[in-house]
Amino acid sequence: MEATFRIWETSRGLYQTFLDNYSLEQLNTIPEGMSNNLIWNIGHIIVSQQKLVYALSGLPMHISDSLFEKYQNGSRPNGKTSQIEVDEIKKLLSEMVKKTKVDFESGVFKEFHPYQTKTGFYLGTLKEAMEFNNYHEGIHLGIMMTIKKYL
């Protein structure tokens, strides 16, 4: 699991650079022909990780219900994310890595409810969910690389 966490930490660092280098207006811009924006992708990977790792382990997620609703799978951005919400997302981006790592090392995760993703991946264990999370975050990072070309 050491490599899985290391990859995840690196991925989250790449997401952090978007938050550090793009204005609120740029984070909210939905380029023509695209269905989302930079900030939605970042919020979405936070929400997805919480669902994949915590909810599927029968544990409470460490995000608000409103954040979950706004960024869950199938949601769409409205282009009006506030700076306050961006700051919350920025904080969660790194905090959830630390929290998950501590929880994993202290044995908080005791069960896992298998899950079939919409893309056809079967996740039967927490380890598989965490590895899939890295794959999922990579997909969204690629989408963000495309979006930034239009900003």
Rank of each mutant, 00 (worst) to 15 (best):
H44F: 13
Y22F: 15
E137H: 04
L24A: 12
E105F: 07
K149F: 00
V108E: 01
G74E: 07
E131I: 05
E2C: 02
K118M: 13
P60D: 04
Q72E: 14
F109G: 04
S106G: 08
M61I: 00
D65I: 05
Y122T: 14
N37F: 00
I143F: 00
N134K: 00
F104D: 02
Y22G: 08
L27M: 11
P77M: 11
H140S: 07
T117I: 03
A129P: 00
K51R: 14
S64Y: 00
T10H: 15
M145W: 00
S94F: 10
A55E: 12
K51Q: 12
E32I: 10
H44M: 12
L93V: 13
T117K: 03
M34T: 03
M61K: 01
S75W: 05
M61P: 00
F112Q: 03
S48K: 10
E88S: 13
Y71L: 03
P31F: 09
N73M: 13
W40N: 06
D87C: 07
E32H: 12
Q49I: 00
L126R: 05
L27Y: 06
R12A: 11
I143K: 06
N28L: 04
I46V: 13
H136N: 04
E25M: 02
L126K: 04
V97S: 15
L24H: 06
P77E: 08
M144W: 00
Y135P: 08
F121C: 07
I147H: 01
A3C: 01
W40P: 09
I45N: 05
F112D: 03
V53W: 02
N73P: 05
S11N: 10
N28I: 05
F18W: 09
F68T: 04
T17H: 06
N21H: 13
T10D: 14
H113C: 05
S94A: 14
Y54D: 02
R12F: 11
M96L: 15
F18S: 09
L67S: 06
I84L: 06
F121R: 14
Q16E: 12
E2P: 09
S35V: 08
D103L: 11
V86A: 09
K91N: 15
I30S: 07
T17Y: 10
I39G: 07
Y22D: 03
T146K: 13
S48R: 13
E69N: 09
F132L: 05
L38K: 01
I139S: 03
Y135T: 09
E128C: 03
L123A: 03
I45F: 08
S35Y: 12
F121S: 13
Y150A: 12
K80M: 11
V53N: 01
E95S: 15
I63G: 02
K80Y: 08
N133G: 01
Y71E: 10
G120T: 06
Q16V: 02
S75K: 09
M145C: 02
G107D: 09
